[in-house]
Amino acid sequence: MIVFQYIAEALFYAFMILTFLGGFMAVRSRMLMHAVLGLAVALIGVAGLYFHLGSPFLATMQVLIYVGAVCIMIVLGVMLGNTPDQLTTKNFSGRNLLLALSACATGFFTLFITIQQTKFAPAAQMVGDMSIRFVGENLLYKYCLAFELISVILLTAIIGAIILARGGREEVAK
C-alpha cells in the first residue's frame, strides 16, 4: 500500500502546482484570454485536490460547473474583446503596484493569521460516507437555508444580466 501512498502524494503536489501555475497565469498574463484559461487550469487543479480528498462527486461537479460552464461563458465574453495582436499595456507600476501589493498582503495575512490560530484536528478517518446521497441529504435538509440563499444570488445575477442586455438593446434602437 506504500506505493499507493507515494502515488497519492505525488498527485497531491502535482495538483497543487497546477492550481498555483494556473492562478499565476490568471493574474500575470497580459492577454485577457490567457488569464481566463489560467483560471480554468487553476479550477481543474482544485478539482484534482477534491478528488485527492476523496470526493469524486465534488471533483466532477467542479469540472462540470466551473470549467465546463462558467469558464466557457467568460471566454465567450472575452472573445468579443481583444485579438492576439492587441496586447494590453502594462499598468503594473506606481500607485497600481502599491494598491495591488497592499490588497494581496491584506488577503494573505488575514488567511495566514486565521490558519495559524486554527487548531487542526488530524482526520483519523472519514466521517460518514461522502457519497451523493450524503451530500444531497445534508444540502436539502441540514443546510437547506444556505443552499436556497446561494440560489438567490444566482437569480440576482440572471436578473442583472437581463437588465444589462435590455438597456443595451434600447440604445441600439435609438
Binding site: M33, L37, A40, P56, F57, T60, M61, V63, L64, V67, G68, A69, C71, I72, V75, L76, M79, S131, I132
Partner: peptide
C-alpha cells in the same frame, strides 16, 4: 463509479473549451 454520468458530462464539456481555444 457512483458518479459515472457526471464524470462523462464533465469531460464532454471540455470539448467546447477546446473548440473555443482553437477558434480564437
Amino acid at each position: 463509479l457512483d458518479v459515472g454520468l457526471l464524470l462523462i458530462l464533465a469531460f464532454a464539456s471540455l470539448n467546447v473549451l477546446a473548440i473555443l481555444i482553437g477558434g480564437w
